[in-house]
């Protein structure tokens, strides 16, 4: 993985992540043996498990959305991260909202990540609020070889910020990913990305190659660390009065029973 050393990552992973949890990933789909899998991507990052943060016992669930222009590599990114495979002809599974990745932080603690892909089909539009709702973190992706996709990241960021916020009203942590860094002809230079990242309050940015599997796990780790830090600093909303509609509920006779 020599390429990785010269990939830019702002802020540098080591600088801001020192105090966050180290974690260990369980790549449960590691051995899928996808025939299309590229050679360089099969390596998995394994971080040494740190001592258990004993107080946390529940299994956290985080919703991470992945957005950006069509064909920048969102679905491939999700597939690479969750299944560690790259398939040029991958089509999203029909009828599924998100991919699930379980990340093991320690012996007793795991995190479930719901990776909401754009469903491939909504590529010509803004997302419905349903897609954004209650998300904890966001990946905005563009294609280094497609200037337009870079320009549009600004719109995507504004769209996210206008449609969802954390419970305390702050913006959702967003990471900016410059995909397809394995390709030779770039239309976007690093200074431009750097400026955009600063101007629009991304938590960080990095170049990635989903095809080669470069910085996919690292960038997600970085994002999830920030998500978890923020989650920990918030009051947990306990009893919500919001209703989810399930089952058939009681019969309607309660009124009639009153005085009989």
């Amino acid at each position: 993985m020599s390429e990785k050393t010269h990939l830019v990552f702002w802020p540098r992973v080591g600088e801001t992540c020192q105090n966050t949890l180290y974690w260990e990933e369980t790549c449960r789909t590691e051995n899928l043996g996808n025939p299309e899998e590229s050679d360089s991507g099969s390596e998995t990052q394994v971080y040494p498990a740190m001592e258990t943060q004993s107080k946390l016992t529940t299994q956290k669930l985080y919703k991470i959305i992945v957005i950006g222009d069509p064909t920048v590599g969102k679905t491939s990114f999700v597939q690479r991260y969750v299944q560690n495979s790259f398939n040029k002809n991958y089509k999203g599974t029909v009828g599924v909202d998100f991919a699930l990745k379980i990340v093991k932080l320690s012996e007793t603690q795991t995190v479930r990540l719901q990776l909401w892909d754009i469903a491939g089909q909504e590529r010509f539009t803004w997302m419905t609020r349903v897609y954004y709702k209650d998300c904890h973190g966001c990946v905005i992706m563009f294609d280094l070889t497609n200037k337009n996709s870079f320009i549009n990241t600004r719109k995507w960021k504004i769209d996210v910020d206008s449609k969802c916020t954390r419970p305390d009203g702050k913006p959702i942590p967003c990471i900016l990913l410059a995909n397809k860094c394995d390709l030779p002809y770039r239309q976007v230079d690093q200074m431009e990305i750097e400026d955009l990242y600063k101007e629009h309050n991304f938590i960080g940015w990095t170049e990635t190659s989903v095809k080669e599997g470069l910085m996919v796990d690292d960038s997600m780790k970085f994002l999830v660390d920030v998500v978890m830090q923020q989650d920990g600093s918030q009051e947990v909303k306990l009893l919500s009065e919001n209703l989810k509609l399930t089952g058939h509920g009681p019969t309607s006779k309660s009124y009639m029973r009153c005085f009989c």
């Binding site: 029909v94 009828g95 599924v96 909202d97 469903a119 089909q121 909504e122 590529r123 010509f124 539009t125 803004w126 419905t128 609020r129 349903v130 897609y131 709702k133």
Partner: peptide
């Protein structure tokens, strides 16, 4: 989030099952 959410829920299902969206 208001009544406008409901059509969007159906749109999301449509997209998840392969419907193509263009606003």
């Amino acid at each position: 989030y208001g009544s406008g959410e409901i059509p969007q829920c159906f749109c999301r299902l449509c997209a998840v099952f392969g419907g193509l969206y263009h606003l």
